Simulated assay, not measured.
Amino acid sequence: MYIGIDLSSGNNIANTSVTVLELTNNNMLKLVSITSGLNDADILDVIDKYKENCVIGIDSPLSTNGDNKCRESDKKLKDSLAEINKFIQNKQEKFKLSSVIPPMSRHMVYLTVRGITLSRSISIGYPEAKIVEVHPRAALFLHFYHSIAVDIQNYKEVNNKHAKLNVINCLSQTISGIEATGNYTDHDIDSIVAAYSAFCWDVGTYAFLFSKTDKFHPYEFSC
C-alpha cells in the first residue's frame, strides 16, 4: 500500500489530507481512500491498518540543517527544476523555484517540526514501514509538465477550479478510482501525488532522487 500525507502547518488540521493507493494484480494503481482533517494520532491509525506492507510519502521537510537555509537536497531539487525551466519558453509554464522553501524559514517551522515528529513516530512504531520525503508540486511538474505545466503552477489558487480539474484529470489517467470531475481540494491533490511519489520511489520510476542520508537526514527525498 502507498500512503501519501499532506501535512498542514499551524493549527489548521483541517488541511491535512491522507491518501491510500494500492497496486492491483495487473500492476495498476487504484485509489483506496482520501481522508482529511487528521491529527497525528489519526494518521498513525491509518498507517496501523496497512503496517505489514506500507510505503509512505510525506509532504513536509523531515530534517533540517538547524538554520534557515536550504538543505543540500532542496538545492538539488531546485537544480533539477531549473534545468527543465531552461527549455520552457512560456514564462507561465515555468516552475516557481520559490516553492522549494528552507525547512526552518519562519512560516515553515511548525510544519517542519510536525513532519520530523510524525516521521520518527512512524519509524519507531512501525519500523517495517518505508518513508520518503516528497514535494507534490515539484513531482507533478517533473512528471507531467509537458501536458499541464500552467495548471501545476495554479491549482493551489482558491478560485482556480479549472486548474484543479486539469490536474485531477491528468492523475485519473494514471490512478484508477479518481473521479476526473471530482471535488478535490488542493490538499487532497497533494496527498494523492505524495502517495504516487512514494510508489515511484519504491519501484524506481522517480523523476528526482536525493539518496544521501545520515543520522541528521535519515530519509531519502524523491519526486
Rank of each mutant, 00 (worst) to 15 (best):
Y2V: 09
G4E: 08
D6K: 07
G10T: 06
G10Y: 03
G10H: 11
N11A: 15
N12R: 10
I13V: 12
A14D: 13
N15S: 08
V18M: 03
T19Q: 01
E22F: 10
E22I: 09
M28C: 09
L29D: 08
L29I: 08
L29Y: 03
L29E: 04
K30R: 09
V32K: 09
V32N: 06
S33K: 15
N39W: 06
E52S: 13
I58W: 11
D59Y: 02
D59S: 13
L62R: 00
G66L: 11
G66Y: 07
G66T: 13
D67N: 13
S73P: 02
D74E: 07
K75T: 08
L77N: 03
K78G: 04
K78M: 02
A82R: 07
N85A: 11
K86L: 10
F87H: 14
I88F: 04
I88A: 07
Q92Y: 13
E93K: 14
K96W: 06
L97I: 01
P103W: 02
S105D: 06
R106M: 15
R106C: 08
M108L: 15
L111K: 01
G115N: 05
I116G: 05
T117L: 03
T117I: 11
G125R: 13
H135N: 06
A139W: 08
L140C: 07
L140I: 04
F141G: 10
H146I: 01
H146R: 09
I148N: 07
I152R: 02
Q153V: 04
N160M: 07
A163R: 03
V167P: 00
S172W: 01
T174R: 11
I175H: 10
I175F: 03
G182R: 03
N183L: 00
D186G: 00
D186A: 09
D186C: 11
H187P: 09
D188N: 04
I189A: 01
V193I: 14
V193M: 04
A194W: 05
A198N: 00
C200K: 09
W201H: 14
D202L: 12
T205W: 00
L209Q: 07
S211I: 00
T213D: 10
D214N: 13
K215M: 13
H217L: 10
E220Q: 15
E220I: 09
E220K: 05
S222F: 08
